[in-house]
Design a protein around this nucleic acid. Sequence first.
DNA 1: ATAGGGTTAG
Length: 611
Amino acid sequence: MARVQPFIITFLRQNPRTAQNANTHIRNLTVDSKETNFIYREFGENQNQSKELVNGAINQPNLDIVKQVCKITRTIPRWEETLLSNFPSFNFSEPWFFREFLRQQESVLFSLSFFHWLRSEYEFSPDLDSCNVLFDKLVEAKACKAARNFLELTGFSPEPGSLERYLRCLCDDGLVEEAADLFSLLNKNGYCPSIATWNLALLACLKVSRNDLLWKLYQDMIDSGVVVDIDVGTVGCLIQAFCNDGEASKGYDLLRQILEDGLVPDTVAFHKLIAAFCKTRNYGRVSELLHTMIATNRAPDIYTYQEVINGLCKNRKCLEGYRIFNDLKDRGYAPDRVMYTTMIHGLCRMGRFGKARKLWFEMINRGMLPNEYTYNALLYGLYKVHDFKEAKKLYKEMLDRGYGETTVSYNIMIAWFCSHGRVDVAYDLFEKMPQKGIVRDLITFNSLIRGFCIKGNIAKSLNLLHELLAQGLQPSASSYKPIIENLRRVGHMQEAKNLLNDMLSRGLEPDVYTHDHVITGLCEKGYAAEGMELLVEMLRNGLKPQQNTFEKLLQCLSRSDRLDDSLLVLDFMFRIGYALKISICHSLIAKFCEGSAHFVESYLREVLEMN
DNA sequence: ATAGGGTTAG
């Protein structure tokens, strides 16, 4: 059962007037009567009014009683405890009573709690009319959790139109799974929601990063036959979805297609495409997209350029980004703080601290104060140029302005100490984080794991890996990589291999070098078969082992007299395009000759033909 | 609305 969110309570306490309008709060409330009571206790007014109630036998439709009860539920705390005794002979479970109650009670929250009271008191179930009214009111108040709960309790079937509004409500709240179910239900009953509703659902999927559901919904949408003409809003969503899936070119094709039809998607779709093509470094496309935007009256705005500059900076084209940044200024665009921060960060990442510092002052001169992001960017820059003195100064300034106590700033400092051989200091910071209420995230752990590995402290690194997992964080390849490399260095190949397997089983992709480390390590220990197995696995995954790895493996295989495997590995090696070193060639041939003289000739021919 | 940190070299 969801709870009242604390911030709402705080808000209500500070702002009791709002308690009068319960409708605005119901979306955040549950139907738990305890919680509802709490709200009454805290905010109900006229708490002593409950005395003057009419007593007597009144079982005829009586609008006056309805009026009184409406007021009681609205104003008297814990009315549930006294209502029956105040109206001893009145039967509240008459259907007309609840219908009329709903008509008069303007607050959805109180209507709902009255319904719950009726249920618990009389096992009441409202008639279809009342169900429809209350359900619609709940949806209108965007209380979709309460609406769902109401549906479950009553089991009634709302009108398709109501359901569609409910559906939109679910989308607004990001409850896309339920929305998708409802679409199927509506479709099954032959009702087809409007394109706008479908689009809303597609957008909601994008918002909660559920591309899988988006595609499923889109399929349903087509199957339902709603798409007569291509809708530009739908296409915009699809373009975004393609970009999220890493298939920007498909998104691009879609854009071209719809432009031919004379339709132009919104800027968000363009932005997504731009970011995606920056990522694949297809800058020609990016520039083309910008031109398209201008040609179709979607003039690139500051956010567009933000996307471009960010894309360039993230993909090692920072100076290009810087050029555009300056260009924009020349053309009269006033970069905002985000753009300055992005640029400063990009320059810092490239070690151009001087330029970054210049922008920093320029920004301040233009009346924009550095915020948490800007401070972190510059701090990161100082870390990159190893200027600890200045970093300390900046960090202090940052703290004075109330910005430094965050995960990111701690991570920068921790990475700093780790890469300057002071993992002990980094660990102190790490231990201070929870005390200060700062969350440690994956990057915090990864930095420290790396720090301890630099010092050769494998045990500590492993501990951190376990702690990370225990916290429920998803490890990344960088959580494992340094540990595996360290284990190989000290020859603990079994553990290294176990960790590698652990990585794979979590769906992580070790890079070429991690694999290479394990293979060469295994070979050094004489585990030819396992080395071979891993090499094959690598090739199967499309990874290209280093030449040295092949050589190590060949030596190991020939030492353990696995001549067939040697030939196989040679074959792989030549196919990749590596040449065989003369020394290894000699030792291989010598090995072949040791065996039955009968085969030497054919072996030789094979090796020579391959080379 | 938008931005930040780990790893970059083998």
